[in-house]
Nucleic acid binder design. Structure first.
Lengths: 243, 243
DNA sequence: CTGTTAGCGCGTTCAT
DNA sequence: ATGAACGCGCTAACAG
């Protein structure tokens, strides 16, 4: 069952069927009704490949996930991220392709096998990149290929689009909330200081304390690494208890 | 840059280039070398959509994930599953599309919007279904559409392909290991008895105890629900301690 | 508002 | 071993 057949059965041309299927307004009510009937009756559904070939859009978005450090396992952020990406795609009638490099294959300047297969094959309309390192070669590659992309997490280059949480502001707000409720001795467990989000959250904590004229200091700051386990340990340490 | 251009630059026909790209043996060494040179030099890569349209294969496999109960967040199994699926796809030069129904849209007999868009659009070569309920309507739908699929988790219908862990055997082996190391009073924390894997693991536990002539009983069996939190609670309860 | 006409880029016979 | 020719199913001008 394809456009041609539907057209024949409905007594119109392929173009008209295509217009109906794609919600083009320039179709008479009669023709539209007729076509919709045939479509429903025969369960017609457009072929994705043909559509992509003709329209030059795949309706597929990529989500590139780093393999490094098995982050996808330990960091509870990833399930949330993935679910969010799926939901957003569903809302936009797009599909989500999950991308991750092979074990041995760190991305190089020429691009990995994954890169060649997916990114260069014009398999995607665009790609979101989770947790890339700042000098990730993938940025340069995607640019050269003019494939739209967005980084998840701040990027220094002003020409690179990114989305990020307001880590500093959020942290500041959280601490300000405690202060507003009368707390005067507020501790924090940080993330790694090598990671932007870690620094920003600590900065926000310091912002709020400074604004309220409250003290901080090493005794109130525990080192964490964004894992549950380490947060547990660091919190016990802050309270002067064994873990 | 497409087949046509590569052919022109290499002084051969499109067919020959296609053969080289697809690893067809029936090409002279001279032609092959020449074509490969042009391909590398100009960074040619076949267009996925055109390829799919002509070959009727997309090189995309789907992984259908249930939305129910936010399992993707709480169950550590999903990140592992996803990573495994990606790796397997990479190894087979396939791509992975992640599928999940919208919030409001439980799968019905006619199929959800997701279903229509992806499954019927012949967007996939096949699909793996994670944690479907036994009477999931998706099974009947996929069958009717002749889209290859496999369930993750046992399914009663003998005509339905599935993969599953040997829950009973694994559980039995674990308990037998403890017994072999001299333990005589062995407790377990179960999963929900409404779930096949939960029952099977409890059965395996009982198998091993019975084989060794060791006792079990309510005092040694804690009720869990596969969440970390509940396992924690149940374990404390088994030891007669507050959680 | 509708139909006709060209492609989109590639796989695949079928001759040669 | 190679090339010509057709078709995959659809979108997008264009003309009417």
């Amino acid at each position: 069952m394809n456009l041609e057949e539907v057209a024949r059965l409905a007594g119109v041309s392929r173009s008209t069927v295509s217009r109906v299927v794609n919600g083009d307004a320039r179709v008479s009510v009669a023709a539209r009704t007729k076509v919709q009937g045939v479509v429903r009756e025969h369960g017609y559904h457009p072929n994705a490949a043909a559509r992509s070939l003709a329209s030059r859009r795949t309706r597929i978005l990529g989500l590139l996930i780093p393999r490094a450090s098995g982050a996808i396992f330990s960091d509870p952020f990833f399930p949330v991220l993935i679910q969010g990406a799926i939901d957003a795609c569903n809302d936009a009638d797009q599909n989500l392709m999950l991308l991750m490099d092979t074990d041995e294959e760190a991305p190089t300047a020429e691009g990995s096998r994954l890169h060649r297969r997916v990114l260069r094959g014009r398999h995607l309309d665009g790609v979101a990149i989770a947790a890339s390192v700042v000098d990730d070669p993938v940025v340069a590659l995607l640019r050269k290929e003019r494939l739209p992309f967005v980084l998840i997490g701040r990027h220094p280059d002003p020409d690179v689009a990114y989305v990020d949480a307001d880590n500093r502001g959020g942290s500041r707000a959280a601490v300000a909330h405690l202060i507003a409720h009368g707390r005067r001795r507020i501790a924090t467990v940080t993330g790694p200081m090598t990671i932007r989000a870690g620094r920003d959250r600590l900065d926000g904590y310091c912002d709020a304390l400074a604004a309220a004229g409250l003290p901080s200091g090493p005794a109130l700051i525990g080192d964490g690494d964004f894992t549950r386990r380490d947060a547990h340990r660091a919190t016990h340490a802050l309270f002067g208890q064994p873990p």
